Amino acid sequence: MNTVSVARNLAGNTAGKIRVGIVGAGTWAEYGHIPSLKLLPEFEITAVFSRDQKKADAVAQRHGIRYAVNSLQALVQHPEVDLVLVLTPAPQHEEGIRAAIAAGKDVYCEWPLTPSRALSEELMQLADQAGVRHIVGLQRRLAPGYRYVRDLLAQGYIGELRSIRLHISVEYFQRHRIAALYYTVPEANFSSLLSIYGGHFLDVLFTHFGYPETLSGLTVNQFKEVTLIETGETQPHTSPDQVVLSGTFSNGAVLSVHLEAGKRNNFGVQLDITGTEGDLKISNSTSFGDAFNLIEGARGDAQPLRELPVPAEYDWVPASSLGGSTLELAHLYAAYARDVRDGSTLAPTFKDALKMHELITHIDTSNRTGTRVTLA
């Protein structure tokens, strides 16, 4: 990738801001993307498109966005848009990505990128050929706390790694779901517990702490049918609600992961990292929301865990009252702005999406064949 597209567009932009156009005016756009972009002085949201014009108009009015356009082409070809955000459900991503690339605009897309790895690879190649930057919404890796823990490991805080244990339990993906989550039901849409939550958290795990050499996967579907609450419509459901992984790292350290959906109580995140000299723990009372991660650590024998505040230098965004998940997204945009300015590669790209898609394919293969797979 290169900076040609944004540099070309910014040349006529006297304010020097990265001007953003939004495709898809849903809840996550208003809860996550719009607040995080408003926090960063490098960005300006200039346009929004929704298939429902009234919805686009309402979002534009609520957030002071100048243009609520009536078509995808109008959004991507708008002269005051440098970066296109594709925030629609995964099965609709291809359309927005292709349109942005054809218009020569940098493109951000939510994870999962597309339901098909081959299609995602094709879109990445098209973007590279067009010279536009591509970003995928695997934002959790850029949270200050995860980057801090990565550095603690590199500095030898726990000595040599012995084990990593991750438990993710979510209240979402239950047997009864709101109609807006219709796209999470068909397995072909690649929008399940494993692809969405597994993709986000396994990306954090393996980006910062390394990929395992071997991996075994067990996936279980406990909800054979899903009912949409508003309509009462019941659909067959074949995606996993429980995922258990085990593996080994190159130094002999062991990995264990448990993902569970539809948990009624006591859901959240716990990541335990054990070493020869000490331990680290990251925990949260939710897998997605306003709560911030608690980081604790201890060295030596039989020592109590103590909180390890994240040093200020890991925070790339202005102070605000935004919650944890929104600030993770703000750090992704801050990383992208640095990439545009400095030519760095901090923000995750479609290449990272392909790597995660491939990992999930390995997990499916291991579960289907009952064998341990070796990762390249």
Rank of each mutant, 00 (worst) to 15 (best):
N2I: 04
R8V: 06
G12Y: 11
N13C: 09
N13E: 15
I18G: 12
V20K: 09
G24L: 00
Y31T: 15
P35F: 04
S36F: 01
L40V: 02
L40A: 05
F49I: 00
Q53E: 14
K54G: 05
A56C: 03
A56I: 00
A56G: 10
V59T: 14
A60T: 14
A60E: 12
Q61D: 02
Y67V: 02
A68L: 00
V69M: 03
V69I: 03
L72D: 07
L72E: 10
Q77Y: 08
H78T: 06
L85V: 06
A90T: 09
A90W: 01
Q92T: 00
E95V: 07
A102K: 15
A103K: 12
K105T: 00
C109H: 08
P115G: 04
S120G: 11
L123C: 06
Q125D: 04
L126E: 07
A130I: 00
R133H: 06
H134P: 02
Q139E: 06
R141D: 01
L142T: 10
Y146M: 09
Y146T: 01
V149M: 02
R150L: 05
L152S: 11
A154L: 04
A154R: 06
Q155H: 06
L161F: 07
L166Q: 01
L166S: 01
E171G: 15
F173L: 12
R177F: 00
A179M: 14
A180C: 13
Y182V: 04
T184D: 11
T184W: 06
N189E: 02
N189S: 10
L194Q: 09
G199R: 01
H200Y: 10
L202N: 07
V204C: 09
V204N: 01
L205Q: 09
T207L: 12
L215P: 07
T219H: 05
T219N: 11
Q222S: 14
F223Y: 06
E225A: 09
T234A: 12
P236D: 09
T238H: 13
P240E: 12
P240Q: 11
D241L: 02
S246T: 09
G247S: 04
F249M: 07
L259G: 11
K263D: 04
I273H: 06
G275E: 03
D279I: 12
S283E: 13
D290R: 13
F292I: 00
D301P: 11
R306E: 08
L308K: 08
L308D: 05
P309A: 01
V310G: 07
Y314P: 08
S320H: 09
T326S: 12
L327I: 00
E328N: 10
L332S: 13
D339N: 13
L346C: 06
P348D: 01
K355N: 03
M356P: 02
H357D: 09
E358Y: 07
L359P: 07
I360S: 11
I363H: 15
D364G: 15
N367H: 14
R372T: 15
A376L: 10
